[in-house]
Simulated scan of single mutants.
Amino acid sequence: MRLLHTKTGEFFDVPDPSKVHYAILSHVWSRAGEMSYQDVEHLRGRHIAQPSTPFLSNLSEKIRYACRLALVDGFCFIWIDTCCIDKTSSAELSGAINSMFQWYASAAVCYVYLEDPEYAQEQSGGPSIAKCRWFTRGWTLQELIAPRILVFVGPDWIPFGSRDSYSDEIVSVTHIPEAILLHLSPVDSVDVATRMSWASERETTRVEDQAYCLMGIFGVYMPTIYGERNHAFRRLQEEILKRDPDHTILIDSSTTMSIDDPAWDWAYTARLMACTMTPGRRPRQPLADSPKSFRPSRSMSVHALSPDLLAQRLRMSWGHISLLPQISVAPDGVRLRMPIVHIGDSLVAGFSLANI
């Protein structure tokens, strides 16, 4: 891990971040561009040749103010993604992406720089943050959840609130349970589909980052290969299944309906749930192409059913069919076993025990 000294602007390599007291910055990249590691090193070379001013004064405003804020709070080091990673090195970039969740978790404090809080519509505790662009980006999801202490700072670089003080507004915007935000419950206590839904409305600049930004949320590690596009998200799901065969990963808001209502018309709803398994047509890929497939639907909710209750809803006896889905990752893809019901002459519906 490469840290920036908050007083001198020098880089320091740290083998074990957990043994260093450092701050970390979370922000949305400027559309005009950010200062990279190469930019900083280029300026350093020029400064060595002509050291007329303190080196830190040559760096971008965002880096200078982040360093100043951390220094005032007593931190000698800060990590900033834009300049602390050499993105020209694929090995370093991949290692950083795989380690990033832990880096945010190990930081003593995370400063969230918000350029767009709504001061015109102030709440009693400060400006509203609900419409900030920071909540729409993929990478900031883990940056919201992982840190122990998270502080919001405005365009003037003055802190105005914390994750704790804004928890009600954050829950309303993100739908992440307060217990997860405040570290009262571990992230992996929430099922896979629900965690995926937290990212369903977020965007990333590169398609692959839809998967890479979620690795820390699911505790998985995998090589990053820019250029693989949607295949990255399928690889992510396979890695998740190797760790946790949670069948909620099969939930697709476009093809899934609830059957927890005793008055449920199973013949009609099963048609809506049905995979495309009519003769001559290829079955639907069981894994999703992006987090958007897990977007919560206003028209349905899915709840857990015991095997006995599922059998009752499907009007089947326990001896007729195994009702516990089984999922495993094999060299040739994902192997799935689930109960199926024939609807009419050619349509087949598959059922999974879900809990979201």
Rank of each mutant, 00 (worst) to 15 (best):
I78S: 06
W79D: 15
W79F: 13
C83V: 15
C84L: 13
I85E: 10
D86L: 09
D86K: 12
D86I: 10
K87V: 14
S89E: 03
S89H: 12
A91T: 15
A91S: 13
E92V: 04
E92T: 07
N98Y: 03
S99V: 12
S99R: 06
F101Q: 10
Q102D: 15
W103D: 06
W103S: 11
A105T: 14
S106N: 15
S106E: 15
A107K: 12
A108K: 11
V109L: 09
V109N: 01
C110R: 08
C110M: 09
C110I: 01
Y111S: 06
Y113T: 02
L114R: 14
L114P: 00
E115W: 12
E115M: 14
E115F: 09
D116R: 04
D116E: 01
D116S: 00
P117S: 10
Y119A: 06
Y119L: 10
A120Q: 12
E122M: 10
S124H: 14
G125R: 13
G126A: 07
S128I: 05
I129F: 09
I129L: 11
K131P: 07
K131H: 13
K131E: 09
C132L: 07
W134P: 14
F135G: 08
T136R: 07
R137F: 04
G138V: 04
G138N: 02
W139G: 09
T140S: 14
T140E: 09
T140W: 09
L141Y: 02
L141C: 05
L141E: 03
L141T: 01
Q142D: 06
L144H: 10
L144I: 09
L144M: 09
I145N: 06
P147G: 00
P147E: 04
P147Q: 06
I149M: 11
L150P: 06
V151M: 01
F152Y: 13
F152W: 05
V153S: 12
G154P: 10
G154M: 09
G154A: 14
P155L: 11
P155S: 15
W157M: 03
I158A: 01
I158S: 02
I158C: 00
P159W: 00
P159G: 02
P159M: 01
F160E: 02
F160T: 02
G161K: 00
G161I: 01
R163T: 02
Y166R: 09
Y166V: 03
E169T: 08
E169P: 01
V171N: 06
V171Q: 10
V171I: 00
V173H: 07
T174W: 02
T174C: 08
H175T: 14
I176C: 08
P177A: 05
E178M: 13
E178C: 11
I180Q: 03
I180G: 05
I180S: 02
L181M: 06
L181C: 05
L181S: 03
L182I: 07
L182E: 13
L184G: 11
L184Y: 13
P186T: 10
V187A: 00
V187I: 04
S189P: 01
V190E: 07
D191N: 13
D191K: 10
